[in-house]
Nucleic acid binder design. Structure first.
Lengths: 144, 144
DNA sequence: TATAAAAATGATTTTCGGTTTCATATTTAA
DNA sequence: TTAAATATGAAACCGAAAATCATTTTTATA
């Protein structure tokens, strides 16, 4: 199994991009968390160890990681683009509490498979799925 | 079965809101299309028949329709909020082409049921589901 | 019916991410 | 070593969502 850095190097070579110290450092920090991070979030984490790296570079690196298949885009509907480690984190879906904003996760290969089947019927090639379920989490249900 | 206007009136009464001519007219136009419309799109349609209605009112009305359960939010990932008739259009899921932006639709009660089951496992009460599948549509696959 | 309180309107401004620009620095192939 | 191309970081720009505000409309009640 290839590492994230290997993926990145392959993608860069394929597209005639150059390596850069900053990008590798940003990748290092990105890989160090299991959370969903926005460019802003990641910048904050990066700054702690590498104060000289700027917002643009983090922003552009995240987009690049996404294109290279290293980062998976997670949109919860608040207009902020967040990313998670696509290789380490298994594809999962979200239960989003409309009351407290808490996000629970679930995975279900059967669901994914059935969606795939529906797509195939329409001759559609799937690259990415997003399943978000909105409602009330157990805690919020209890206190209401 | 209640009409959209009845839903709106019930919601308005429940929340101490007043009626307004503009809002009813905007609803009339919103109901006249089967497309997904943004506030901007809807404004354009509204202006043709009622030129004096402004953007803010359309924008606020759409949000209100959404809260009242009349309009369903559809986000295809370009940062623009679009809405569709929630009562007339059966809940369906989207196949979004990342190349041309075309949106295909599918319904599958089994998928919905399985998602419901996953939610139940986490004691989560579902009010709304969103399944968006990104990838390449048949047309775009053919020409590549 | 008159009226006062509250909500709605529409023009405008503000906010806030995402994205682009540009001068400078770094990387890399030859 | 050097020339061409990419990357960087600060700042500007962009576009849609959301908020503001003076004025108008609605509605409950006297």
């Amino acid at each position: 199994m290839k590492t994230e850095l290997e993926y990145l190097n392959i993608y860069q070579k394929k597209h005639g991009l150059k390596r850069s110290r900053q990008r590798n450092r940003i990748l290092e920090i990105f890989l160090s968390t299991d959370r969903h991070v926005s460019a802003e979030d990641l910048l904050e984490m990066v700054k702690k160890k590498y104060p000289d790296i700027g917002y643009s570079t983090v922003y552009r690196s995240l987009n690049l990681f996404h294109k290279a298949g290293i980062a998976r885009l997670v949109e919860i509907g608040d207009g902020v683009a967040r990313y998670e480690n696509a290789l380490k984190q298994k594809q999962h879906h979200h239960l989003i509490c409309e009351n407290c904003g808490r996000i629970l996760e679930f995975t279900d290969p059967k669901v994914d498979e059935m969606i795939e089947k529906n797509a195939r019927k329409k001759k559609f090639k799937v690259t990415r799925r997003r399943i978000d379920v909105f409602g009330l989490c157990d805690r919020c249900r209890a206190q209401k």
